[in-house]
Design a protein around this nucleic acid. Structure first.
Length: 469
RNA sequence: CGGGGUGUGGCGCAGUUUGGUAGCGCGUCCGCUUUGGGAGCGGAAGGCCGUCGGUUCAAAUCCGGCCACCCCGACCA
């Protein structure tokens, strides 16, 4: 068989680009750093969105939409925020053929404009908590773009909330972090992310606490797949989000923000992909099973295949028929593998003569004959089993590429190929700076029980160090 | 912004050293044969060689300016 993709072991970044091109996931846009998300990838994104959206709403947040353009002056109201974002802002200086009195920025994130409106909408403690989410595009003029992982424009959801107390803000941030993000990534994407706290050095510009979910990619590098922030009263003070408390005093609200983006598509590719292409978790896959007419002569094979499609669809399986018998079978099979379709049911004259079809599973690569009458049960079971298998494979790889060490030097060494788990006390602020010199970052910190610390100077914390995207 | 490199059909490249009719592979289209793991044969379409200027009888090729992109670094909530 001709080589379709650069093998991962030969050149992982090249393999990633190959998968994106050959599986028809995306193209580079005409402006540097922009991307065109093709239907194959967009369908996956829509399913991610639907799952994420449902989880977000179950925490009580409501969707809204704020403008793309933000007055430049808004960005300047929070000192750290503007410092963090200024280098990557796209600024519009002209409109309607005239120079604008005040430049507007294309939102890099919406804390500021949403803060402005929260100030209008929050008057009383009865107005809190105010829980908002929006699905939008944002623009950050990145120096070195990569499709899905870091593009100048990307799609995401950003949640913004205001609370009466610091504790309520913290509780909600962590609820989003674990119940929405962590579960979405583990249960739907089948990626065993590690939740934790970002160090002060890695914290979001303007936040008091930043929490992250780190996934390990196929080459041992880390990818931050979602993040949640406690913003303290920084934005409340900058935008004057005040309320009257139950006791009659004027108080600043406590705000949070949290986001997850199309970067998750890149994580999905790099976490589960193999040398034959993408592998999609069955729960996520837009098409879970592809019924293929291998070869046709008198219409009987197609009829049998159509029958199976009907049975599977009735059983709730997302199924499609591939009856393009004018295209060589090999091409169609390779294409389905590239795109990561979890199951193929191959129906051909030889199978049918024996009363069988062939079940080909993308996750483990197996091919087994199935009796025609048992297809639905087997397919349903395989979808469940393969969702679990994919997660366990990723978890096993993560564990195999994570080394437990005691010192900073050992951690830096181990980070060349994977992750290092090291006591944070052995790293510290100085050690973190030293690791950064060799492109290694502290991915996150967590307590012995796995929970996120309230500050990086808590005792007995563990750090994960690694290279990252 | 510093260092290095590249711009030639949709994609990947050769041709530039030594100026002389723009080529190859893949893809696309048509026809026939195929179709159980990216098929074979035949035919066809598609490029003012990044851009502007210079040298020359003649420039993809030599010279100069500009632009864009890629890699390494810096940067990356």
């Amino acid at each position: 068989m001709a080589r379709v993709l650069t093998p991962r072991a030969e050149d992982f970044p090249r393999w990633y680009q190959d998968v994106i091109a050959k599986a028809e996931l995306a193209d580079n846009g005409p402006v540097r750093g922009t991307m065109v998300i093709r239907p194959t990838a967009y369908a996956i994104w829509e399913r991610m969105q639907a799952d994420m959206d449902g989880r977000i709403k179950s925490t009580g947040a409501e969707n809204a939409y704020f403008p793309l353009f933000i007055p430049e002056s808004y960005l300047h109201r929070e000192a750290q925020h503007v410092e963090g974002f200024s280098p990557e802002l796209a600024v519009v200086t002209h409109g309607g053929g005239k120079q604008l009195a005040e430049p507007v920025v294309v939102r890099p994130t919406s804390e500021t404009v949403i803060g402005e409106f929260m100030a209008k909408w929050v008057d009383s403690y009865r107005d809190l908590p105010l829980l908002l989410n929006q699905w939008a595009n944002v623009v950050r003029w990145e120096m070195r773009p990569r499709i899905f992982l870091r593009t100048s424009e990307f799609l995401w959801q950003e949640g913004h909330t205001a609370h009466a107390t610091e504790q309520d803000a913290k509780d909600y941030t962590l609820r989003i972090h674990h119940e929405v993000y962590e579960k979405h990534m583990r249960e739907l994407l089948a990626i065993p992310v590690v939740p934790g706290r970002k160090t002060d050095r890695e914290r979001f510009a303007g936040a008091t606490s930043t929490y992250t979910l780190e996934g390990m990619m196929g080459d041992g590098k880390a990818l931050q797949m979602g993040t949640s922030h406690e913003l303290g009263q920084n934005f409340a003070r900058a935008f004057d989000i005040q309320y009257s408390s139950a006791s009659g005093s004027r108080e600043y609200a406590w705000t949070t923000s949290w986001g997850s983006s199309t970067r998750m598509l890149g994580g999905l590719i790099m976490c589960h992909g193999d040398d034959n292409g993408l592998r999609l978790p069955p729960l996520l896959a837009p098409t879970q099973a592809l019924v293929m007419v291998v070869k046709e002569s008198d219409g009987s094979v197609t009829a049998a295949a159509e029958g199976l499609v009907g049975e599977l669809a009735a059983a709730g399986v997302r199924v499609k028929l591939d009856d393009r018998v004018d295209t060589p079978f090999g091409r169609r099979a390779v294409d389905a593998e590239l795109k990561g379709v979890p199951l193929r049911i191959e129906v051909g004259p030889r199978d049918l003569a024996a009363g069988n079809v062939t079940l080909a599973r993308r996750i483990d690569g197996s091919k087994t004959p199935l009796p025609l009458g048992g297809v639905v049960a087997e397919v349903t079971a395989a979808l469940v089993a393969d969702q679990k298998a994919l997660y366990e494979e990723a978890l096993a790889r993560r564990e195999a590429n994570t080394v437990e060490v005691k010192t900073l030097d050992e951690a830096i060494e181990a980070s060349q190929t994977g992750w290092a788990r090291v006591p944070w006390s052995a790293v510290g602020v100085d050690g973190e700076a030293k690791a950064n010199e060799s492109a290694i970052t502290v991915r996150c910190l967590f307590r012995e029980d796995g929970s996120a610390p309230a500050a990086q100077d808590e005792p007995n914390l563990t750090a994960i160090l690694g290279r990252s995207y």
